[in-house]
């Protein structure tokens, strides 16, 4: 059953072009695959993202015709994402990469099974991490003797997936320290810090606790300014 696209995007029926776009952009940020990278619910977020993309496309087609929609869609994302393409394109690319990774490692797995070589173990571990089979990934990681940067990275991913964030963070930190030039490790570490900081950025909290100066503050500031002026021999507010 197809859902009502307006409901999916959380807007009123008959919403304007801009409203649809704004809602879409907000939701795309909310369910972005980057945010759910080390999360066991990633597949659900993917599904949600697909729903949102579908709803957006349907509405945009109805609103301004296919041609206009296409142009606008691309423009929006070229502007906001600087040559990275739209979220859905990115998403498709990621999915393709994932599939390629999986199929190639399965291929190697079949061929080199029983060949107890560290690099092969690492490939297997990576495959299990990608599939979400944490117990198996941990088993292989425990078997490896060569504890290099990539071992710590994979171990960190396993910890994060199962919810052990302190150990996950320190493992990935260690991987970055051992191999500072590696983009993947550094990226993962940045992502963690972003996720943490991102929690405080939700509008509910931000609007309340990071407001511009309120009346109370204003009075205190005025009083301070007045006191300072008086210190220097002048006066800002005559009556006090």
């Amino acid at each position: 059953m197809k859902k009502n696209p307006y409901k999916v995007l959380g807007i009123k029926e008959g919403a304007s072009y801009d409203e649809i776009k704004r809602a879409y952009r907000e939701l795309a940020k909310k369910y972005h695959p980057d945010k759910y990278r080390n999360n066991p619910l990633a597949d659900l977020a993917d599904e949600k993202m697909r729903e949102i993309n579908e709803a957006y496309e349907t509405l945009m087609k109805n609103a301004g015709g296919a041609y206009q929609y296409q142009q606008d869609y691309d423009q929006t994302y070229e502007n906001s994402n600087a040559s990275q393409g739209s979220y859905s394109q990115q998403y498709q690319q990621q999915q393709q990469q994932k599939q390629q990774q999986q199929s190639s490692s399965q291929y190697q797995y079949q061929y080199q099974y029983g060949y107890d070589d560290e690099a092969e173990l690492e490939r297997q571990a990576r495959m299990y991490v990608n599939n979400g089979n944490l117990a198996e990934a941990q088993r292989i990681l425990d078997k490896m003797r060569n504890r290099n940067a990539s071992w710590y990275y994979l171990q960190g991913l396993v910890f994060l997936r199962r919810g052990w964030y302190d150990r996950g963070y320190s493992s990935i930190q260690k991987a970055v320290n051992m191999d500072p030039s590696n983009f993947e490790y550094r990226n993962a570490l940045n992502n963690l810090n972003q996720q943490r900081a991102g929690y405080r950025q939700n509008p509910y909290y931000r609007n309340t606790y990071h407001q511009s100066p309120d009346m109370c503050n204003l009075c205190v500031n005025l009083w301070c300014a007045d006191t300072c002026c008086e210190c220097m021999g002048g006066d800002l507010i005559g009556c006090c």
Binding site: K30, Y31, K35, Y36, N39, L41, L44, A45, K48, G163, Y165, D166, Y169, L192, Q195, R196, G198, Y199, R200, N202
Partner: peptide, 16 residues
């Protein structure tokens, strides 16, 4: 870090 990251995971689940 540990606490806020746990909260961010709660939020991610909640939004699904």
């Amino acid at each position: 870090f540990n606490l806020t990251y746990s909260l961010s995971e709660i939020e991610k689940a909640y939004s699904l």
